[in-house]
Design a protein around this nucleic acid. Structure first.
Lengths: 341, 341
DNA sequence: TATTGGTGTGAGATCGATCTCCTACCAACT
DNA sequence: AGTTGGTAGGAGATCGATCTCACACCAATA
């Protein structure tokens, strides 16, 4: 069965016995329209259930009232929360939100951005999957598409960005562990292509070096950001002869995996192993003891990103603005003090 | 700074020294095109970085290669997972996914659907916020827009749907509690406008009545689906003189809230209170003991919904198909046996 | 009276891609 | 030679909304 074609200005104009031009004037309120004619047009529009065709409007005006959002993974609670916030903020400015997840895949990201570009969306908010090979983003920026990066900053890309102080947060976490007497501190991080992971690694290394501790590659595990991979990585770490006394995990999914793995190995937190995770999450207060974390102001990221994007859409041409929110250590019960011999 | 206007067929045609028509033929591979001309066109297109303008294509062809998804709340892990699955399936069929969350608000849902309609999306997957007042959906269906309902079925709406057996699942949960000797069984549910909530309530009542137990309104708490509201509702329930011995929560957010509330009141699960939640979730295996749940096949919902939607988009005109997946009781450790006096 | 200026309205152009005509050419036939 | 048919490719129409331009008309003004 064919889709019923919707009513157009033409239909409305015919029903009101005026030309398309007059109908458009009455509907959009510009130019001169006689009050009688205007009334007939509005009446006809209401009667026929007329709704403007956005696609046609978009073709004429050059873009769709849509903002694109490309998160790394919509299932990750961090991105889900940000998506929700962006949705609310976008709606507040009469924009729809087009969410398309890159699944942390660079190829997919390229395809999605191409798609969004071809749709002539007004602007995009992107969490780039990779720290390099970002010519596709560079090109969009060069073409003038308003883009705001979130969570992951690409220093050499001339566009606005909103992120948190990953290096500082990671450093604070590791220094917290060092201050509690830990010396063999493991790191469980995700794919190093992702900028965030690299920054957090840098914080880990900086903290160790600032305290005269060696960086031991055997204490650094790389895993993709799924619970199962994090479990495997944790088990590998703790199957070594000289066990770490503490673990720092770079995101909440990793933290979840590490917790499950430690439990399955019969290692108690914090008695046998201390734990700090980056990013606060629901589960962190569910366990006994609760988990010490580096919290980031997740709720501020989306709204600010939208605000910056709207500025650009409105034509703001200042140099790129980069905002980095500070992180905050929330001390709960998952870190114990070690007394050195 | 003005956005650089992108290259059009006209530009490509000019660069290749042919007409727009020939350029279109070469680019889309139809009709007769000389091989020399075709080559020049493709070369020019590549050189100029030509990408078709989807908006113009959509205007001509009648719709955009987009599928709309209107979940109740994108932050709810259930919908996040479904959104992810839909995204993957949609991408497999060359469709982009436009996610717009209704926030469980009927007015917002109406506005969003209006928007999607005006955008001429190919089809929509909707979790309706309300069980009644759905003329807006009925109208879309009447106009021929392909729509698939998920999670929440509206019996009188002639369109496909994918859901789970909410009544049966809830009944199984409550019967499980009854079989363990519980008689004062509380229910924590969300807004009764939502169809799912009503079905689960029905299952609760049916189980009680089938076992000759009274339905006590004081044991039924209504809360909106946020952790904080669920905590409040739980505390209210357990502040009554005759405490329930068991609780059934209708979604994972409620379950989380109930757990936190019980802990804060010093009530141990399952020693003092037994607990079953609808919908399995990560936290369920984190607590000690782990939580018994009614699991639904979340991973099957999105892909099936997309498949059904694509059928409709391709013109399938069978009568509406309604699929209901069965639920499954996963018995963990949160239900204790009560020995009657 | 002739002119200006304010109103109201319609015809047609535009946005970009694509499709339907229509013309033109050349080779192979009758 | 005249006709057919296959191949190429251009001009213009189309989708729907909206804007520009041009043309009316009527009242107030010089």
């Amino acid at each position: 069965m064919a889709r019923k074609k919707s009513t157009t200005v033409k239909d409305v104009a015919a029903a009101a016995n005026v030309s398309r031009a007059t109908a458009a004037r009455a509907l959009n309120g510009y130019g001169y329209v006689g009050s009688a004619a205007a009334e007939r047009v509005l009446e006809a529009a209401a009667r026929l259930g007329y709704r403007g065709n956005r696609v046609a409007q978009a073709l004429r005006q050059g873009d769709l009232p849509i903002i694109g959002f490309v998160p790394g993974d919509i299932q990750n609670p961090f991105f889900a929360k940000v998506a929700h916030d962006i949705d609310v903020a976008a709606r507040g400015s009469q924009h729809s939100l087009l969410i398309a997840s890159s699944e942390e895949d660079l190829e997919q990201e390229r395809a999605l951005l191409d798609n969004l570009r071809a749709l002539n969306v007004r602007g995009m908010i992107v969490a780039p999957a990779s720290g390099k090979d970002n010519q596709h983003l560079a090109r969009l920026v060069r073409e003038g598409t308003p883009i705001v990066l979130i969570d992951r900053v690409l220093e050499d890309l001339p566009c606005d960005s909103v992120a948190v102080d990953n290096e500082g947060g990671a450093r604070e976490a590791v220094e917290h562990l060092i201050a509690h007497g830990h010396r063999r501190i493991a790191l469980i991080q995700d794919d190093t292509r992702i900028v965030t992971a690299r920054d957090r690694l840098a914080g880990y290394i900086n903290a160790l070096q600032a305290n005269g501790l060696p960086v031991d590659q055997r204490l650094i595990a790389v895993s993709s950001s799924t619970v199962q991979h994090a479990i495997d990585a944790t088990i590998r770490l703790f199957s070594q002869p000289e066990r770490p006394t503490a673990v720092f995990t770079v995101d909440s999914v990793m933290t979840t995996g590490a917790l499950l793995a430690l439990r399955s190995m019969g290692l108690a937190v914090p008695r046998d192993v201390s734990l700090i995770g980056f990013d606060d999450f629901d589960l962190a207060t569910f366990t006994d003891p609760q988990i010490t974390v580096i919290a980031q102001p997740v709720g501020k990221i989306g709204p600010l990103a939208v605000r910056m994007l709207l500025d650009r859409i409105r034509g703001l041409s200042e140099p790129p603005r980069h905002v980095r929110f500070p992180t905050r250590l929330i001390s709960r019960g998952s870190v114990s003090r070690i007394f050195l011999p």
